[in-house]
């Protein structure tokens, strides 16, 4: 083989493997991308039941209800809308009413969100960035000097 042919073989190998990887990636992306939505999105967009997505917001105060076994129900709210969520399993250590939470699962036909994963924030000053951002976009201020949206906008 000449030097050129050898280089051809190597380049062919590289391009071949890269294209296989690219096909795998496209295929995998279609199956495993999960979108993030807030309760308001759920109310507005009418997300189709059965589509997996992540629901983020605050656990509504007073909404946590322990069902039979390890089944738990609670509401996730962005202070404008809230979505009832059911979850089977042990909640994370930091799951608390009034705290940020991200639940992953599907929306049932009855508007109930059935979560199979629940993530709570990981320390006292940490809130999942997408939750913080989404809430801020909705005008909910977080952290020091935060004011309750009802107190400011007040007209709804």
């Amino acid at each position: 083989m000449t030097r050129k042919q050898r280089r051809g073989v190597l380049i062919g190998l590289g391009v071949g493997i890269l294209s296989i990887a690219a096909i795998l990636m496209l295929f995998a992306f279609r199956q495993s991308i999960v979108f993030f939505h807030t309760p308001s999105d759920v109310a507005e967009h009418k997300i189709a039941p059965g589509v997996r997505f992540r629901l983020g917001g605050l656990v509504k105060d007073g909404s946590v209800e322990r069902g039979t076994g390890t089944r738990v129900g609670f509401d996730v709210t962005d202070t404008f809308q809230s979505v009832p969520v059911t979850y089977e399993g042990i909640l994370p250590d930091l799951f608390r009413e009034g705290q940020g939470v991200v639940a992953e699962g599907v929306l049932g036909a009855d508007g109930h969100f059935v979560a199979d994963t629940v993530l709570a924030k990981h320390d006292e000053t940490y809130m999942p960035p997408e939750v913080a951002k989404a809430l801020q976009e909705k005008g909910v201020q977080l952290g020091k000097g935060a004011t309750h949206p009802g107190g400011e906008t007040g007209t709804q």
Binding site: A21, L24, M25, F27, A28, F29, Q31, S32, I33, V34, F35, F36, H37, R54, E130, A134
Partner: peptide, 12 residues
């Protein structure tokens, strides 16, 4: 906002 979970990595 999306998240790419373990299935993606398992498949690629």
């Amino acid at each position: 906002k999306i998240s790419v979970g373990p299935p993606y990595f398992n498949m690629t």
